[in-house]
Amino acid sequence: MMSEKVTSNDVARLAGVSQSAVSRVFTPGASASKKTVAKVRAAAEQLGYRPNALARGLITGRTRMIGLVVAYLDNQFYPEAVERLSRALQARGYHILVFMAGNDTANVAQVVQELLDYQVEGIVTASVAMSYDLTARCDAAGIPVVMFNRGQDDPRLSEVTSDNYGGGRQVAEYLVAGGHSRIAHVAGWQGASTGRDRARGFIAGLAAHGMKPAAVVDGMYNRDTAVAVARDLFSAPGRPDAVFVGNDHMAFAVMDVLRHELGLSVPGDVSVVGYDDVPIASWLAYDLTTVRQPVNRMVEATVDALAAFIEGDDDEPHKIRIPGPLIQRSSARKPEGWTP
């Protein structure tokens, strides 16, 4: 037989306090004396009471829940970023609902509708596109959306990214300074602002030296696609002597093809530069030269922007670009005396 559910009134009677005192003890940010807290928590533990956060949110209008929508976790950048985002939001007293959505419009719309049904107070999207109609739906509901590591031409949306254009340009400068003359680019997905901006910066950086890329091919941020592109690019006559790969996830695949399938030396025959600086980039097996995404600062800016919306401190959308350094390792020829 199921036992009757323990209520806050039961806890109040046992603790010898009012029901409102019990409510304050279990409400983040509410005030209660240490003596009251101790009595209430002891009574709750004895009775096995657990507060219903969803029900309290319906009453107060504050669920303190944030929806975190992620496109994919294959790229090692995202598990790290999601963990840091979750910890930072939890440190502010928010609860996190994580949903996988991909970039299919219908799938994203369904996930966002579920989050609205949960009455989240804000949404963070990590490399997920928002349609105009979907943004309008969130806007009408008063739910702020902050895009993490993805930009979009919509003045209603806040976004936080690294300086992708500047990063791509920095790679071009580095490879030119290293004496390379046939420099290719395995680009990130051109349907995403990150891929487009890194490619634009890279091409502009070469143009500043009177050069054009040997090839620019969309690697789709996909490992298998990057493998196929690398085989085509480096099996042909007049192969590139350097390649900028749109993220580390693809760069590892390119390096594997160069070394283990084509028998080329990295960086003796081909210099390779990535983007992200995920933990494996520093492993000796790859020791990848790459542009570091400033994840800590990106997370901090994302959480600050979302909290400002929710708390009513700032309701203006912001487009935030944070520069990151190029990390020199052994996968690319090091220019003598090079400084960014």
Results as ranks from 00 to 15, higher is better:
106 A>P: 01
139 D>M: 09
224 D>M: 08
307 A>E: 14
115 L>Y: 13
305 A>D: 09
270 V>M: 05
161 T>R: 13
201 G>Y: 11
41 R>W: 08
268 G>P: 03
306 L>I: 12
307 A>Y: 10
250 M>H: 03
244 F>M: 08
264 L>R: 07
203 I>N: 08
210 G>K: 12
256 D>H: 04
157 L>D: 08
236 A>P: 00
72 Y>A: 15
244 F>R: 07
275 Y>N: 05
216 V>C: 02
225 T>M: 04
45 E>G: 14
134 L>D: 12
97 L>W: 11
168 G>T: 13
212 K>C: 07
307 A>D: 14
180 H>N: 06
168 G>Q: 06
210 G>V: 09
51 P>N: 00
40 V>Y: 06
71 A>N: 13
69 V>K: 10
218 D>V: 11
77 F>D: 07
79 P>W: 04
11 V>D: 00
218 D>H: 08
149 N>F: 03
143 I>P: 09
246 G>M: 01
157 L>T: 10
314 D>H: 07
150 R>Q: 14
181 S>L: 07
257 V>A: 03
13 R>S: 10
19 Q>I: 06
12 A>Y: 05
239 R>G: 03
25 V>M: 02
281 A>W: 04
102 G>N: 05
198 R>K: 10
170 Q>C: 13
45 E>V: 02
247 N>L: 03
190 Q>P: 00
91 A>R: 15
57 G>T: 09
215 A>D: 04
265 S>E: 11
96 I>E: 01
241 D>S: 06
36 T>F: 00
92 R>H: 15
303 V>H: 08
10 D>V: 00
205 G>S: 12
277 D>G: 03
140 A>K: 15
230 A>E: 01
313 D>C: 06
148 F>G: 09
204 A>G: 11
99 F>D: 10
264 L>M: 11
253 A>F: 01
107 N>L: 13
96 I>V: 14
232 D>G: 02
68 L>P: 07
125 T>S: 06
213 P>N: 01
277 D>I: 06
326 L>P: 12
303 V>Y: 01
202 F>I: 12
